[in-house]
Design a protein around this nucleic acid. Sequence first.
DNA 1: TCAGGTCGAGAATGATCGTTCTCCGGATGG
DNA 2: CCATCCGGAGAACGATCATTCTCGACCTGA
Lengths: 200, 200
Amino acid sequence: MDRQEAHDRILDAAEQLFYGRGIQAVGMAEIRQASGVSLKRLYQCFASKEDLVDAYLRRRDQRWHQALAEHIDRHRSPERRLLAVFDFLAAWFDTSDFRGCAFINAFGELGAVSTPVAGLARAHKCALRAQLRALAVEADAEDAEALADQLLLLVEGAIVAAAMRQTHHCPAEQGKAAARGLLNAHLSTTTPDLSAPPGE
Amino acid sequence: MDRQEAHDRILDAAEQLFYGRGIQAVGMAEIRQASGVSLKRLYQCFASKEDLVDAYLRRRDQRWHQALAEHIDRHRSPERRLLAVFDFLAAWFDTSDFRGCAFINAFGELGAVSTPVAGLARAHKCALRAQLRALAVEADAEDAEALADQLLLLVEGAIVAAAMRQTHHCPAEQGKAAARGLLNAHLSTTTPDLSAPPGE
DNA sequence: TCAGGTCGAGAATGATCGTTCTCCGGATGG
DNA sequence: CCATCCGGAGAACGATCATTCTCGACCTGA
């Protein structure tokens, strides 16, 4: 097993464990065991647990945004692209190991105590807002900034609600419905009513 | 110092520390020092850290909901009462020690590892939804359940966004604006447009 | 004054954790 | 065949933490 493979296996194990149980709840020994990499190698690849956490969050951020972008890019019409965000969420929420937003969780756990973690969480949300803003601009919203802000609330709210839900009602559907309403409101002076869901 | 006062001082110190820095980041010794209560007494009042965390979350839940209800009850008109939720949030977000929702944070940190914590967090959000539902019913929304769900997304999203924000834009205002839009949409068949903020 | 009880301060205990070190087997190069 | 390096397994170290224990001071009631 070469260095690169060890690196990846460690990061895979760390992601699954950190995300699934919380960062402070999993020790380096457990990551070692789950990855099948020796402790020595582990510390060659990542100088400290802090480094590993950093790498975990960075890779997750990149993958998450890429997956979201791919989901959006399956659609052409600006409205559909915007609403596709919530379809992406719905699919994510149905993942068997879904446990909320890794960044919200990490921020709640370590945000007050680790500036790097707080910074990565903020950067993740900032990038999400930029993505939503771009969609709002595409959709010709009157005030794209305001729409982006409001959509961000819906997205984050849906993620939190989905993480804690006990019922099977899908917060992504609720968010999508709300987003349709907001989008419609932001377009109301120039375009026809979109309140009724278009067939898809 | 009698038992009751010790109990309260411990809980006060624990709340400030747990909320401000995260539960696992603060040790019993620090709570002892901050509360000025001896370790022996601390363990007489709370049999374990788990107990203390439980009590912290229960008291915070009760106080938070009571403060919200009081804020709502300053208004009479159903629309005002509903939107007052976001004024409550705005005031909360401006608190100097604001660090997001204690329950979202606790859930992210311990939800996967402690069933009591997960249960308390879920109960907190469940009560919030019930409160929003009541407001939606008062306001004669066509579908109070759906409106409550959507408002819940806005509230939780606003809390998360406020916890992480770097700018001084207030997510509570964004949430309020979005809520006005949603409320209006839910009333559109029966009542006049409320999109324009009423003077207050 | 004494016996009994309570309390605070902080040391002791036992567990866990991040990190480093030791030791050994095996691969490699001459 | 030998010397050298590298990696794996896991013991060792030092720190921290939750929890308990010790000890001495202080109060109380007779």
